[in-house]
Amino acid sequence: MFQLAAVTNLSLYLFAGAVVVLLCVLVYLQLRLLKAERIKNEAAAKFQQLESQVNSLQLATLESKLNPHLFKNILNSIQSHAYQTYFALDKLANVLDYILYESRNKFVTAKEEIEFALNLVEINKIKLSPLFELNVKTKINEADPMYDQPLIAPLISIDLIENAFKHADLQSEDAFISIVFEFKDSQFFLTVSNKVSPKSPLKKERGGIGTETLEQRLRIIYKDHYKLNRFVEDNVHIAHLNINLREHTAAMHTVR
């Protein structure tokens, strides 16, 4: 009986030992699991941290790229303006030369006057869009003997051109300015036309002197040998100046 009991005891111990071993294994495994979990969490956290770090780095690089691009764009437009300004200043220098040295003479050649006027047009261009319909034409018979003779009063074309730029209706879609110089049969022609706004002009404090002085100058210098007409039709203003130099010189000679 005792023996039986002893055998039963042994198996009991064996069973208990197995249970303990299993428990130990279980605990161990549990511990390992926990550890793995922790490492994983840590890794994820690290990754997240790294990711955010990378993002911010990327952003930084992008931003650092963006700034020069902005600069480039701004530079582009400033450069463009600077060039236009330089260009206009260059033409202004020419105009100044003319005003300082040539306009002191009583008369200049048609050639000089036209060159001057072209410079003036270039300066005025600065206020226009480059797409603006500005039409400048010169039709000149250079073989004409009077073309190279000092017969034109200096700055005579200034008023008409200035007026066109001053009064042109720049906003309307079919706006245009057209300036045509002609020299043929010993006659000087200047035709300036531009779109004007149908609205009545705003009252200005000063103004209107230019037109009068031009008329006055022409009358004193060329007497009956000039024609200055202004028309407004369909919102287009046309100024047409014609100086007959042959008649003018003939009259001057007979006076002498």
């Binding site: 039409n135 035709t191 036309s193 028309f231 039709e233 047409h240």
Partner: peptide
């Protein structure tokens, strides 16, 4: 109203 002659009008056209 002053009317421009067609010749003068034609000068500035394209």
């Amino acid at each position: 109203k002053e009317e421009a002659s067609p010749e003068v009008k034609a000068i500035s056209k394209y």
